[in-house]
């Protein structure tokens, strides 16, 4: 059975409005302030950085601790792209017997496994009788640091 503590809920709508942030094209001076600081030009749109295909991308809030080894913690927000073809070693949002779970996908030699990134959780081998589908591929994790 998938780990219920890792179950995700409440889909988040992906904003499509650009959010521009200033980018410094120079190194931060530890001493004298740069006179170029008043002439910032290059701008970054985080939507563009984080979302490759906005029509196929969804945000999910993480619950549980089975992926802490991959730097994914409870409360983090995962960017999930459904248009990415899942490959071996991708971190995926999968449906296992109609339940959501986030795990690393192992797919080698006809063997499919869901691997937690936390030793206390066993590797889950996908058997023929399982109802298994990869819902989407996790492309980024948004982890709050302060």
């Amino acid at each position: 059975m998938p780990n219920p503590s890792n179950l995700l809920s409440h889909p988040r709508q992906v904003l499509s409005a650009p959010l521009y942030l200033d980018v410094c094209a120079w190194k931060v001076p530890a001493g004298f302030p740069s006179p170029a600081a008043d002439h910032t030009q290059e701008r970054v749109d985080l939507n563009k950085e984080l979302i490759r295909n906005k029509d196929a991308t969804y945000l999910f809030r993480v619950k549980g601790d089975s992926m802490t080894g991959a730097g994914i913690y409870e409360g983090d927000t995962l960017v999930v792209d459904r248009s990415v073809t899942p490959k071996h070693n991708h971190i995926v949002l999968a449906l296992l017997n109609n339940e959501f779970t986030v795990k690393r996908l192992y797919r080698r030699g006809g063997v499919v496994k869901l691997v937690a990134e936390n030793n206390i959780y066993p590797i889950r081998l996908i058997k023929e009788e399982d109802d298994f589908v990869v819902w989407g591929v996790v492309t980024f994790n948004l982890h709050k640091l302060c």
Binding site: S9, P11, L95, N98, E99, F100, W135
Partner: peptide
Amino acid sequence: RVFRPDLK
């Protein structure tokens, strides 16, 4: 159903 797979 996209977000409620249990409704399948």
